[in-house]
Structures are given as structure tokens and as C-alpha cells.
Simulated assay, not measured.
Amino acid sequence: QADLAGKRVIDYGCGSGVLAIAAALLGAREVIAIDNDPQAIEATRDNAERNGVATSIVLYLPAADPGAIADVLVANILAGPLHALAPEFAARLQPGGALALSGILVSQRDELLARYSEWFEDLSATIREDWVRIDGRRR
């Protein structure tokens, strides 16, 4: 569990908002939730209201996202988009910022670790069943 108190967090590919809401409940100052599906944006908004954290979460479709720099970026999306978004994720994190990626199959781990190593250090992969979470810090 990360100390998110006072931090700006990006949840890229927010879906129903689970990670964005968790970050807000853990004390994040601001959570930027981004998804390319308008229904996901609505679901996140509804779930944030139900959990009492709607004022802490700002929602964007990618084209409307103003590009704020964050302390922490989380993304639970497929490996293909994670690969393509690596340069953007690097640009969106301040030096030393924390990265947590999930939605990754074990067979995709090495390729993504190599891809992210250009911009991130202290990369590690945690495996649970067939799934991997990659953590790292912005160089």
C-alpha cells in the first residue's frame, strides 16, 4: 500500500474507477481518471459519488486530458496499449514518480519490462497466478 497522501495520481484506463477511488480514499490530493470509453467515464463518476470521493477525481477522455504531471501513475489495461503508451506515461510522471502497471500476462512481462526500462528504474514484476504487476520509478 503506497502513501498517497497529498499526491496527484493518474489512473489511465480507469474503467469503473476502482483504482481512482482507492487512491482518493487513501488520501490522494487529486486523481486524474482517463479512459477512452465515455461509458467508463460515467461509471467512474457514479462510483466516485457513491464512495464520497467525487470531488477528488477529475475525469477525461484522452483527447480532453490537459496532460498534468503526476506523482503516481497506475494503469490496469492490456499489454498492447501499455506498450504504446510507455512514452506518454514517462512524460506524465515527475522524476522519482511511481508507476504501477497491471493487466499483464506472464508471457508479456519481459517485453514490457524492456520497453519501460528506457524511462524507468527499479522495475520489478510481481506475479499472482497468470497475471503480472510491474512497478517502477521515473528516472
Score class of each variant (00 low, 15 high):
139 R>P: 10
37 D>K: 15
128 R>P: 00
63 A>R: 13
50 R>P: 11
44 T>Y: 07
73 L>E: 04
93 L>Q: 03
24 A>D: 03
131 W>A: 06
95 P>R: 06
3 D>L: 08
105 L>E: 05
29 R>L: 07
54 A>R: 15
80 G>W: 10
67 G>Q: 10
39 Q>T: 13
15 G>A: 03
43 A>R: 15
45 R>S: 14
92 R>M: 06
2 A>C: 03
8 R>W: 08
109 R>E: 15
130 D>F: 09
59 L>G: 03
72 V>A: 03
116 Y>Q: 07
49 E>P: 11
64 A>P: 08
28 A>I: 00
86 A>L: 05
58 V>S: 14
43 A>T: 13
139 R>A: 12
36 N>E: 14
3 D>H: 07
27 G>P: 02
123 L>D: 05
44 T>Q: 06
32 I>N: 04
138 R>S: 06
117 S>I: 11
82 L>G: 01
126 T>S: 08
113 L>R: 08
53 V>R: 09
73 L>N: 02
14 C>N: 03
6 G>V: 04
31 V>S: 04
99 L>A: 00
107 S>T: 13
85 L>P: 03
56 S>W: 12
104 I>A: 09
121 E>Q: 15
20 A>E: 03
87 P>V: 05
88 E>P: 02
16 S>P: 01
14 C>G: 01
138 R>N: 07
38 P>Q: 12
36 N>S: 15
109 R>S: 13
108 Q>H: 11
104 I>D: 05
40 A>F: 11
74 V>H: 00
124 S>V: 12
49 E>D: 15
35 D>Y: 13
131 W>V: 07
118 E>W: 08
139 R>L: 13
91 A>S: 11
3 D>E: 07
108 Q>F: 08
70 A>T: 02
81 P>V: 07
114 A>Q: 15
8 R>H: 04
89 F>W: 04
21 I>E: 01
62 P>F: 01
104 I>H: 00
136 G>F: 06
42 E>F: 14
16 S>E: 08
38 P>L: 12
130 D>H: 14
125 A>D: 09
121 E>T: 14
131 W>M: 05
111 E>W: 09
24 A>P: 01
135 D>K: 08
10 I>D: 00
70 A>P: 01
100 A>W: 09
130 D>P: 02
109 R>W: 10
64 A>L: 12
44 T>P: 10
106 V>T: 10
74 V>C: 01
84 A>L: 13
43 A>G: 14
28 A>C: 04
124 S>G: 05
120 F>R: 06
57 I>A: 05
118 E>P: 09
23 A>G: 01
134 I>N: 03
5 A>C: 06
107 S>W: 09
113 L>G: 05
21 I>D: 02
98 A>C: 00
46 D>L: 15
4 L>M: 04
30 E>C: 07
111 E>L: 14
126 T>G: 03
25 L>R: 11
2 A>G: 04
121 E>G: 12
113 L>Q: 06
18 V>K: 09
135 D>I: 10
122 D>V: 11
